[in-house]
Nucleic acid binder design. Structure first.
Lengths: 253, 253
DNA sequence: CACTTTCAATAACATACGTTATGAGTCGAT
DNA sequence: ATCGACTCATAACGTATGTTATTGAAAGTG
């Protein structure tokens, strides 16, 4: 899973927007691979902003530790995701990031990113689009935290994971590996671990979710999607035609 | 209030990153002013993404209308803010935007934005930084929706508005004009209007917030900030030195 | 000026969720 | 095999917040 394989970049490439140089430049962000252990903290809140990362293997999450002793998990990162763009333009991290399980990440520097922007406005637009898409997921989470009940939050969370994992071929027969504890899920959904457990039981009783330890099966993904009125554009949609056209025009000019 | 007056662009300019051409280019986004009425919908959810806007006067908000009949307000836009970057890279709007009171907006097109990216990587970086900052506010809201009680959410919301309004000189003697109904505040904070009213009463009784219709006074802003442990970096901080340096290097090269 | 509509305060009641506690699996370390 | 540390399920109980309703004040409309 490289950045070239993401929806956004695939969209650009399939429309001939990316030159060979662009591709080399993009992949140069992933030259520096590093193995990381489960639970390893990539950076803490308030650390200096020095680098960004591409996740190659494993799951990570960004989080905030709060004054009242609780934690809010902001986002789950899967292979192919860029970590850290949240802090672009800030001198201190706004959130910590830690690995959930072991994996491989590719750090790259501020400078590499700026060089990329300077050399290719197509890639710049692509990176912005990628960042905006991550934000769209966060916005969706915000909506669920604000206006939906626990069972809808959990159903939405699981279905979103399901779609994202399907994109990277990590779903088999409607089942997937999910290394999150119920406490972590609660921290992501603004619920207590106890209530996450209750809610899982409820979804199980309704035949919507089966779970055994770290393996989750959605027997009928469509039913789950209907329950939460899932709109998948923000995950699956490739870049709009207008976007591609402008970029190829700019390239030629 | 123009884009050149925002924290991000001020930061770039004061470090000599922006050329005269850059400034002209940036201000060209604001050539096309239009007066809008209170309550006017700038665009609906699922509309085509054709343009973005700079708010010159008045308040606006982005929102989602939900299947369960409720609404979630995502963000309040004040003069100087860019509206619509949330949808960059999508063909359909992810959220509707409407004016709260009457005002003036400056629409600009996808094409204008791409031309700006192509002509100036400094401005591209600046626009990204601006977008990321807006997202930081949203992330902060998410944290409050997930892990804080009603009085903390409201206190945080009011204090954030206070800081943002202070930045644009719209605060006098710790008081400001706030054209939001309690229902709208509830839709922003994930609360019922009734509970917003209760919570206002509570904050009033504690001497933290005075309110008369659309006029709000924070008698002791610091006390309010302490209550919510407000971290103002994401609103007040200018761009980090490293950021500026890279950009001026790129410009010379 | 009447008339309606909107907005806000407050009360009474209902409930979803948090908190605390307990016991049963599971896993890794020794 | 034994132990401790996690993780999870479930129950009992408390509470913050939602819902519905009533009233009054303010603002818009003819």
């Amino acid at each position: 899973m490289t950045l070239l394989d993401t929806v956004v970049m695939q969209g650009l490439d399939s429309h001939g927007v990316l030159t060979a140089d662009d591709k080399t430049l993009l992949l140069s962000l992933e030259l520096n691979a590093r193995r990381v252990t489960a639970g390893e903290v990539l950076w803490q809140e308030v650390a200096d902003v020095d680098l960004f990362c591409v996740v190659k293997e494993g799951w990570a999450y960004s989080y905030r530790n709060l004054g009242n002793g609780s934690m809010q998990i902001l986002k789950i990162y899967l292979p192919g995701d860029i970590i850290g763009m949240r802090d672009f333009g800030f001198s201190r991290r706004l959130a910590g990031v830690a690995m959930i399980n072991e994996g491989v990440i590719c750090p790259f520097s501020y400078q590499q990113l700026f060089e990329l922007f300077a050399r290719s406005s197509s890639l710049a637009a692509g990176i912005i689009a990628t960042t905006v898409r991550q934000q769209a997921m966060l916005t969706e989470r915000l909506v669920y935290l604000g206006r939906y009940a626990a069972h809808e939050r959990l159903a939405h969370f699981l279905y979103e994971l399901y779609l994202r994992l399907k994109r990277i071929n990590a779903v088999e027969e409607n089942g997937f590996f999910m290394p999150l504890s119920q406490e972590q899920i609660g921290d992501a959904l603004g619920l207590s671990a106890v209530h996450v457990s209750r809610t899982f039981s409820m979804l199980r009783d309704e035949g919507l979710v089966e779970r055994d330890r770290q393996h989750v099966v959605l027997p009928d993904p469509q039913a789950l999607a209907r329950l939460v009125e899932f709109n998948d554009t923000y995950i699956d949609e490739s870049l709009p035609p207008a976007f591609q056209n402008f970029l190829s025009l700019n390239r030629i000019a």
